[in-house]
Design a binder for these strands. Structure first.
Lengths: 154, 154
DNA sequence: ATAAGTGCAAATCTTTTGCATCAGG
DNA sequence: CCTGATGCAAAAGATTTGCACTTAT
């Protein structure tokens, strides 16, 4: 099912790179393709990416994974997460869901995503009031999921 | 205005610790007092805390700073931030502003805080919908401050 | 060709731990 | 006293960097 080929999703990647005099390498394509294959809501650390690409010919050195994550983020193709629990993580930046929010269970780590026009509006209002230009707006709701909630309540 | 004395703010600290069979040590008091002295909106890393407490008798070893930050956070007296730019940071947890949001300039790092009932309401609605129990709700707005905005438009 | 990118290993952080010593309750 | 806490230094992770070699353009 998750059989997506690295075939030709890098159209945007190639042009972004060319503009900056940078090159489209198989490593960069693999890293980006990995995020595209696993789907939008997934959060991966550098180590995760390195591990997932460890297959046969697909391997990318950890140093290059770090370099690629930074590059792809700066190109706006990946988004660095802001969830403190457990190191730096990245997810695919989505045009469809540029300002999506996270409901995180602080107990078990379960994460659900959601969107909210009201939140975006509030963020925009705050930005405007202070003269800032909003780029992205992410709400993190630290909470207890149904299971952990039950467990704690005893 | 922000003239808070380190004198006797540890009332809550002492009792919280006693409940858990833990001790009120001068190091823990110093770390907490530092956050109280610098005021609510300030974000400090472990290294910052260690540096700021480096004065004469006040010094606290870095290892203890780390241990204290974790402890104070678990007691709810400090709050770990979720801003990726530049390592783990903490701020004083405030009863007055439990769910405050951050407007962060991605260029220069300038950070402004604000509150919003609408955001909290949205967070609560999402939590309720999915059966989660909301603990805390933090909106991070990545943006460009007036200065950097001007510079970039240049 | 030629400058950018990669892999590897070494160098840097950042954070955690083991252990002997110290001190709060 | 006795157990929890501290400081130090070593250990463990996480991320970055120097360099010789490879490769997109």
């Amino acid at each position: 099912m998750a059989e997506v080929q690295g075939s030709k999703p890098s159209t945007g990647l190639r042009s972004s790179l060319n503009e900056r005099g940078q090159r489209l390498t198989p490593q960069r394509q693999r890293v980006l393709a990995l995020f595209e294959q696993i789907g939008e809501g997934r959060h991966l650390s550098a180590e995760d990416v390195h591990g997932l690409l460890a297959h046969g010919e697909e391997r990318v050195s950890l140093a290059t994974v770090y370099r690629s994550l930074r590059l792809l983020s700066s190109l706006g193709l990946l988004q660095e997460l802001e969830l403190p629990e457990g190191g730096r993580r990245f997810e695919l930046a989505s045009d469809a869901h540029p300002h999506h929010h996270h409901l995180v269970c602080v107990q078990c780590g379960r994460t659900e995503e959601f969107e909210s026009a009201a939140v975006l509006a509030a963020g925009e209002q705050a930005a405007t009031t202070l003269g800032f230009l909003l780029l992205e707006c992410v709400l993190n709701v630290r909470s207890l999921c149904p299971q952990c909630r039950g467990a704690r309540a005893g």
